[in-house]
Design a binder for these strands. Structure first.
Lengths: 138, 138
DNA sequence: ATAAGTGCAAAGTCTTTGCAGATGT
DNA sequence: ACATCTGCAAAGACTTTGCACTTAT
């Protein structure tokens, strides 16, 4: 990949910035099309993957098996969300009121492991209020 | 699902206990076969899914798109692992020396959201020491 | 010219599902 | 008998890849 971005790559980045939240590759593709941009799905996947490898985009795989992508603004200190995920219906609600509970010790430890950390995810799994009566009934 | 377990369900649980670590449905299926158990892959998937819905098994989807399942021994206090995941090669190493950094506030908040929490995952993504020179080279 | 980017369709993976047969109470 | 469980193969969903074509330097 070169330093200069192609027009399609620029447009992908642009939309990622615009929405500033998680989006699936397929949804991003639809978005691009709707804005009159002719682009192939494979291209979207390919560029998202390379952005991910560069540490510019984070990926979160949800219960359905879909990957959601999001621009990483500031790799360490910036605001980011964790989620409550319903394992029954897949509903995923961000934990807006909660500070990230990560301690410094964790990142220190990661350095020991010689990993170059781009981002992290913290996800909670269980049943949402709607699914609880449906699943717990027996 | 009834209260009584079928022999195949018992066997699946047995192996999950034996290994006491994450395993994919496919690997579990192989394991069952190797122990001379004739069982279909679909059955493995089906039972893992129902265990998951009951909150007895946790699921973690890894970079390859595969799901790993693990018996939940004690939903709140028990030891559990978080991981460093290489987004290039998929290598996933447990953070053994790190305490779970979750604060009480997180679980309190989750109650507000009326979620019934079964388990959580905390995952770090980046490049492992082997992949760093490969990816960062340009 | 040369290297990188792209589209399309085919292939690949993992997982789910329909349905008929087997199992168990 | 009746409800549940199971196997198999087909279907589904998302993602990746091969290859030829286009674009940009």
């Amino acid at each position: 990949m070169s330093n200069k971005l192609s027009k399609k790559q620029q447009k992908i980045l642009e939309i990622l910035q615009q929405i500033d939240s998680e989006i699936s590759a397929q949804q991003l593709h639809i978005e691009l099309r709707q804005q009159g941009f002719k682009i192939g799905l494979a291209t979207v996947y390919r560029y998202l993957k390379s952005l991910h490898l560069e540490g510019l985009v984070q990926e979160r795989i949800i219960t359905t098996g879909e990957s959601l992508y999001k621009l990483i603004i500031d790799s360490h200190a910036s605001e980011h969300y964790h989620h409550l995920n319903c394992i029954n219906c897949g509903r995923s609600v961000p934990l807006e009121a909660v500070d990230c509970p990560l301690k410094k010790s964790v990142h220190q430890s990661s350095e020991l492991q010689k990993f170059q950390i781009y981002y992290h995810t913290l996800e909670f799994f269980g049943l949402c209020d709607i699914c609880q009566p449906l699943v717990n009934k027996d």
